[in-house]
Lab assay of single mutants.
Amino acid sequence: CHSECLGNCSQPDDPTKCVACRNFYLDGRCVETCPPPYYHFQDWRCVNFSFCQDLHHKCKNSRRQGCHQYVIHNNKCIPECPSGYTMNSSNLLCTPCLGPCPKVCHLLEGEKTIDSVTSAQELRGCTVINGSLIINIRGGNNLAAELEANLGLIEEISGYLKIRRSYALVSLSFFRKLRLIRGETLEIGNYSFYALDNQNLRQLWDWSKHNLTITQGKLFFHYNPKLCLSEIHKMEEVSGTKGRQERNDIALKTNGDQASCENELLKFSYIRTSFDKILLRWEPYWPPDFRDLLGFMLFYKEAPYQNVTEFDGQDACGSNSWTVVDIDPPLRSNDPKSQNHPGWLMRGLKPWTQYAIFVKTLVTFSDERRTYGAKSDIIYVQTDATNPSVPLDPISVSNSSSQIILKWKPPSDPNGNITHYLVFWERQAEDSELFELDYCLKGLKLPSRTWSPPFESEDSQKHNQSEYEDSAGECCSCPKTDSQILKELEESSFRKTFEDYLHNVVFVPRKT
């Protein structure tokens, strides 16, 4: 048989008469490798580009789960590009990614509803959504962080984005990388972005840091009482949809009607710091009717980097990364020049730590249904340095008659930039024990000054392991946590139920 035959053949030295091919099969003959313009397919066939392209389009058009959109890589027609490569849609070739590779997620039936953290986790790592997304989240724990972890990498949506009755959302900033909504599939009414009845939605994105392009379709905003109209108009300008909307697409009466839409800028007039305090004062603000001013709200939190936005980490279910302080308005003076500047002394802060701070007014709604208010920009203030805590785990070892090696770990709280350490030492008198000992005694162990690591005695271990207080009263049991108490109650309830079950099964009433 021919060298490319495997198993047997019907005619000697003829690659077209093989029972099976050793390498690849091409047009009725066995070959060692697939010549151009053919590609290896499933490690035994040679196919042309049209064959591989037909497989790709067949799966793409069917949208069946589990099928493969075949691509070409290293002269092979394979189910998908290997790690580190992405497909070129024009020629199906796998090309190296520039940075992290995109991950295209194809949605069944063309859309997916995100109504819980669990459903959001199914899209973790996706960068391109081939379909439409509907966000409908009523509640949950730590929602802002969970949504950002699972949806934060999405850069492109081919269909539309719909935010509907998501009472738990305060902001859409968890879509931190969303840059493009194509609108290839539109919501009824030709809408590519749809926001309806979101009672706590206050911000779409921080438009000073976020760009969003909507290729096709219109915007729809109705019944978002805490979303200011200025935020919607800003989205029109940034996304390129200005002029597409009709009169009733953006409701003037049901958007922002319960919001404090600040239209003035508060400026800080005085800032002073110490290692654990920050004193702030800002310019006074009074609405047209000074009785509408209820006070100020001061927001602050630790910020290692200057990239904080107002609604980071917030949701309507209680999660809030900001510390909020309510401040009463100052006494009002008739003389504008003698107006008191409101302020606040922030206490209990960490030394040498940068804080993000902003302040906003708290006002009631005027009778004319106009909203007044003022808010400052987010500023960054760093507390002063102070003395560091003591170095940890000092170790001293003498390696000769004239040297001592000293080692330690950095302090747990540096409280500033540590530039150097101060080492103090003092000579001590020799131990009298060394002169009084009889060095001729056998088995004498000389006193040693070398360091030995501390260890816990058996008594201390027994005390720590004991669940009861000892007789001397030195140790006591740790208080039980809520989960331990709940577990004990469940076990007790189970024992009672099981005992009742045994009584009912074992003891049967005697027939009379």
Score class of each variant (00 low, 15 high):
106 H>E: 08
108 L>G: 08
109 E>R: 15
112 K>A: 05
115 D>S: 10
116 S>D: 01
126 C>W: 00
128 V>L: 15
130 N>G: 02
131 G>L: 01
131 G>I: 01
134 I>G: 05
135 I>Y: 01
136 N>L: 05
147 L>T: 03
149 A>T: 12
149 A>N: 15
149 A>I: 07
157 I>H: 03
169 L>V: 15
169 L>K: 02
169 L>T: 14
172 L>E: 03
172 L>S: 05
173 S>K: 13
175 F>R: 05
176 R>N: 06
179 R>D: 14
183 G>S: 06
184 E>R: 06
184 E>L: 12
188 I>H: 09
192 S>L: 04
193 F>Y: 10
194 Y>P: 04
195 A>D: 04
198 N>I: 04
203 Q>L: 09
205 W>H: 13
207 W>L: 10
209 K>M: 11
210 H>K: 14
211 N>I: 08
211 N>W: 11
213 T>S: 07
215 T>N: 11
216 Q>P: 01
218 K>T: 11
218 K>P: 15
224 N>M: 10
224 N>P: 02
230 S>Y: 00
230 S>K: 12
236 E>C: 11
237 E>V: 15
237 E>D: 15
238 V>K: 15
243 G>M: 09
247 R>P: 09
247 R>K: 12
248 N>P: 12
249 D>T: 15
250 I>N: 15
251 A>M: 14
252 L>I: 10
254 T>V: 06
255 N>Y: 02
256 G>P: 02
257 D>H: 11
260 S>F: 02
260 S>K: 03
262 E>M: 02
263 N>D: 05
264 E>V: 04
274 S>P: 01
281 R>T: 10
281 R>I: 14
281 R>A: 14
283 E>K: 11
284 P>S: 05
287 P>R: 01
288 P>V: 14
290 F>A: 06
291 R>C: 02
293 L>Q: 01
300 Y>L: 13
304 P>G: 02
304 P>R: 10
305 Y>V: 14
305 Y>H: 13
315 D>W: 15
317 C>I: 15
321 S>E: 10
321 S>H: 10
324 V>F: 03
325 V>A: 14
335 D>L: 08
338 S>E: 14
341 H>F: 13
344 W>R: 14
346 M>V: 09
347 R>H: 05
349 L>A: 07
350 K>Q: 11
350 K>C: 11
354 Q>K: 14
357 I>C: 15
364 T>I: 01
367 D>N: 05
368 E>R: 13
370 R>P: 08
374 A>F: 03
375 K>T: 04
379 I>T: 14
380 Y>T: 13
381 V>P: 11
384 D>A: 12
391 P>E: 05
392 L>I: 10
399 N>P: 15
401 S>F: 11
401 S>T: 10
402 S>R: 11
403 Q>I: 08
404 I>S: 00
405 I>M: 02
408 W>M: 01
409 K>M: 00
